[in-house]
Design a protein around this nucleic acid. Structure first.
Lengths: 251, 251
DNA sequence: GTTATAATTTCTTATATAGAAAAGGAGGGT
DNA sequence: ACCCTCCTTTTCTATATAAGAAATTATAAC
């Protein structure tokens, strides 16, 4: 057991505050201090500095929230993720075939982080989804596609540390049933989210790998009522075809 | 002259590194250290911590770039900006009238920061613009609309600290000419970007105020060739009408 | 006004940091 | 294969910084 050498204690504490504000905006000093197990005097000093550098914003009512500077960073961060750029033309092509919402995501902190979205051109239904949101691995289409690439050990580790919270009545909350479904995903290469995240929404996802490493996933989302046996088949084939093309580019 | 009390020195240094990586991705330790005037040993320790908390990503070739965690923060940050939520229905309404790209921006660090974008439904031309990008105050439509709300003193301060860099041959680089144009904006309430940021793109913008405070701006962007005397008039009226409606909501 | 509660500042000791220097890679040339 | 150079990483210690208790100031409720 090697002793961890701490460096940047304030930086780590600042990150703790940021993470808390990510989950709970508009909180008072007291609340933040309690939630992060720090004294008020330490907390206010860190918050002052965070406000100074634009990471946090302080409102007139003395509550704190995440700052606009982060929006700038994120824009650059996405630009710096090569995957978004490389995949874009192929996802656009895919959209010409399937006129539905297409998402690109990466694996981040055991969740799917959305980094690009292509909206349908001729459909009028708008789904609420945004770049920057996250979805669990166990119930989203992209998530399951990625989870299916995990080793048995990794899946076990994931299940041991994550509760399968029911988002809808369709959400799979039984680890064994999930494991079985992952077997099917491994066979077919395609993962579904059949109203497991949100009612009426059906998603189909595939993973993206580079040199045996998971680099991300992409998916097609649509209202369930538009799904037919034919469109399902078409989507599966188009996704697998696009996956193959993109992975050839990544190699 | 009250002496500034420093707190969170590492945090401030970390922000300096982040800002550098925002501008220059994929840099080596040496390069980052030199650019930020820090020793390599200090820099690597901060970078290690930044990587640990997900703000920075370290690649196999030992270069550093902004981390995906920032994309999560940004998503929440935008959600926490009430302006985006409040204005959305009105901007959607506006888009039904004018089928062009509509942007919402806020004033951030003397620039316009884009926080929402509504794309045209029936037009096929796609403009490259993203949430998170910034535009100068002196040449963008939203920027000029905001600048026109500055006091003479504030405008002077802005001009003293910012060079009017020519983005295109149409960009106004003469401070006096800009000042004159701002007078017109104050009269009409509407600001133009006539191919001053990008060739072939014409934008019309208005500011948003709450209790005499600038809170943001929004604009319509379109290819110049689509602009007619009639559409220009229509856009101006629709923008001013929408501005009025939104500001009534903000009050 | 009075009281209670929260925000902010001050001050001092314990702690973390900065940077020089040394050690440990990685790569290029011969 | 070996050396040499440049870059990354670790170690170590004087010095600067941070943490927290307590005092002070602001804010809100009554």
């Amino acid at each position: 057991m090697t002793e961890m050498k701490p460096y940047g204690t304030v930086l780590i504490k600042a990150a703790k505050i940021m993470d808390y504000l990510e989950a709970q905006p508009d909180q008072s000093l007291q609340t933040i201090a309690k939630a992060t197990n720090m004294t008020a005097s330490t907390t206010i000093k860190i918050l002052d500095t965070l406000v100074m550098i634009g990471y946090v914003q302080k409102d007139k009512d003395k509550t704190y929230r995440l700052g606009a500077k982060l929006i700038r960073y994120a824009n650059k961060s996405i630009e710096q993720i090569d995957l978004a750029e490389i995949t874009l033309p192929y996802l656009e092509e895919l959209q010409k075939t399937i006129d539905e919402t297409i998402h690109l995501g990466i694996l981040n902190d055991n969740e799917i982080l959305y980094i690009n979205k292509l909206e349908p051109k001729n459909q009028t239904i708008r789904m609420s989804s945004k770049v920057g949101i996250t979805r669990p691995l166990y119930n989203s289409a992209m998530g399951k596609a990625v989870l299916a690439e995990f080793s048995a050990e990794e899946v076990g580790q994931y299940l041991a540390t994550h509760t399968l919270v029911p988002y809808t009545e369709n959400t799979i909350t039984n680890p064994l049933r999930l494991a079985k479904e992952l077997d099917v995903v491994r066979e077919t290469g395609v993962a579904y989210d059949d109203e497991e995240v949100e009612s009426d929404i059906f998603c189909t996802g595939v993973s993206l790998k580079k040199a045996a490493q998971i680099v991300g996933a992409f998916s097609v989302s649509m209202p369930k009522y538009r799904l037919t046996k034919e469109s399902k088949q078409l989507i599966n084939e188009a996704l697998l075809q696009t996956k193959q093309t993109i992975e050839k580019m990544l190699a």
